[in-house]
């Protein structure tokens, strides 16, 4: 008895507390489900980091005059923007042309560099820079 589609539901926080606990107990014991979880997690991660495609200018002008499109308020889209910023360290101008761009990736890297001085368990620290 394997978890099958409960693996996706698990990643998407779509299981109730009992089902989640059961899934975790099963995962600890079942190598097959762990492997499937990893491939599903990887695909899910890639889908969620697909670049956000900008709406072509004028798309809505035929419908009526509309205010210029700003960012959508959806989580994955906002997350994608954040991830893009993390990956490439591109500064978004938020406070006019006076703003100082922060390279978030460099900040994370400097944190991890210092963290790696502590003994052992680097393997956990390095995850902070890995998944961006």
């Amino acid at each position: 008895m394997h978890l099958e589609d409960r693996l996706s539901a698990y990643l998407d926080s779509e299981l109730d507390a009992t089902q989640q606990r059961q899934a975790e107990e099963h995962l600890v014991e079942c190598a097959e489900c762990r492997t499937e979880l990893s491939s599903v997690a990887e695909v899910r991660d890639q889908l969620r980091s697909l670049p956000v495609v900008e709406v072509r200018a004028g798309t809505f002008e035929d419908v009526a005059e509309v205010v210029p499109l700003r960012r959508a308020r959806f989580r994955p889209m906002a997350a994608a923007a954040a991830v893009a910023a993390l990956v490439v360290g591109v500064g978004f101008g938020v406070a006019g042309n006076q703003s100082v761009p922060l390279q978030l990736n460099q900040v994370v890297e400097q944190h991890v560099a210092r963290a790696s001085s502590d003994p052992g368990f680097n393997v956990l620290q390095v995850q902070a820079v890995a998944n961006r």
Binding site: R71, R73, A78, A81, A82, A84, A85, L86, G89, V90, G91, F92, G93, V94, A95, Q98, S99, V100, P101, L102, Q103, L104, N105, V107
Partner: peptide, 14 residues
């Protein structure tokens, strides 16, 4: 950092 820092995209998140 400087108050003028843009937060590396974090400030865009709401």
């Amino acid at each position: 950092v400087s108050r003028k820092s843009d937060g590396g995209g974090l400030a865009k998140l709401g």
